[in-house]
Each structure stands twice: as structure tokens, then as C-alpha cells.
Simulated scan of single mutants.
Amino acid sequence: MSLINTEVKPFKAQAFQNGQFIEVTEADLKGKWSVVFFYPADFTFVCPTELGDLADNYAEFQKLGVEIYSVSTDTHFTHKAWHDSSEEIKKIQYVMVGDPTWTLAKNFEVLIEADGLADRGTFVIDPEGKIQIIEINAGGIGRDASELLRKVKAAQYVHGHPGEVCPAKWKEGDATLAPSIDLVGKI
């Protein structure tokens, strides 16, 4: 079963953000747009490049009213240690969620149980707490924050404009489509 348009399941987790430990629940994902960004593990190779790319683009996500929640099966303590020791990770201002109990990885169906790690899963959640975008990458394939920004803008546009859809490669300001019988076979 696809998780698209399903509501985020209840959870409670400890996180690290801006030098503090905080608690995060599913309620924090409601009332605004959110990106839940799973990655395999702290102190690895591809992960810091992805998280650094998100950090470099965080202000753009914030302008769109989007909060970022990076998640791995590490603890919030490990997130702090990584943040304190890595120049790339030190740039991060968004929430770094610890999931050592695998609750979130199981809820979002990205757990690699044999390894105790999460797949590279990206989930865009609307203000009602429903999943609108899912992307899962193999472990060796890093993601691109600028492409994620484009997808978030498309999701926000469609959410705010019922009856319109965004075609392939749509960028903010481009034409959209209004599906109807008149378009069938004409695109």
C-alpha cells in the first residue's frame, strides 16, 4: 500500500537542534509543510553531503514555510556529537531527529531491519499531516536539495489550486494544466 495521502502515524522522538535537545511528535508536522528526510547514519560518506546541501538551502525552504526534519536511527546524542565535530554538519539549523527505536523508520516504511538503518527516504508532508511526495534512493545515491525545492513548490501549488496539476519539469511561474476531457490525447 502506498503512503501517499496517508496521515503521518503517531510518534515521539528526541532530536537535536541549535545546541538543544528537543522532543518532536507528529503534531509538529501539522499546520505547515514539512520534509522528513531519512538517511542511513551519522559519521558516514554520502549522508553529510546531502545534509550539508539541505543546510545550504534551508533558508529557501523556510521562505516557503517548510520545516526540515532529518532522521536516522542514531540517537540525538550522536547527532550532537556529529554536529560538534563536522564542519559540514555544523551548518545545520534544522531539526535532527534520533530514531534508535526505529519507530519513524517503520512508520515511513524505510527501515532496513537487517542493518538497523534507514533507506534514503524523502517525504513531503502537507499542513494537514498527509504525505504528498515520497522518494526513496538506494544507499549510494545522494539527493539534490534544489530538486526537492522544486517538488515542494509544485506540491504547494497543487495544494493551493484545486483542479490544476503541474506537468513534468514544472517550475514556479510556469504554466499548469487543468485536466479535462478536452485535454485527452492533445498533450
Rank of each mutant, 00 (worst) to 15 (best):
M1F: 11
S2Q: 06
I4Q: 02
V8L: 08
K9D: 06
G19R: 03
G19T: 05
Q20T: 15
E26I: 02
E26W: 02
L29M: 03
G31C: 05
F37D: 10
Y39L: 08
E50M: 06
A55E: 03
D56V: 12
D56K: 09
Y58I: 15
Q62A: 15
G65C: 12
I68H: 05
V71T: 02
T73N: 13
H76R: 02
T78F: 08
H79T: 13
K80D: 14
H83W: 14
E87V: 15
E87L: 13
E88P: 00
E88S: 14
K90A: 15
K90T: 14
I92S: 09
V95H: 00
G98P: 00
D99T: 09
D99A: 12
P100F: 01
W102P: 01
T103I: 10
E109D: 15
E113F: 00
D115I: 05
D119M: 15
I125F: 03
D126P: 02
P127N: 04
G129F: 07
I134M: 14
I136G: 11
N137K: 05
N137P: 00
A138M: 01
R143N: 11
R143H: 09
S146T: 12
E147H: 12
L149T: 08
L149M: 04
R150A: 13
K151R: 15
A154L: 08
H161G: 05
P162R: 03
E164A: 08
P167M: 08
A168T: 15
A168D: 14
A175E: 13
T176R: 04
D182M: 10
D182S: 12
L183S: 05
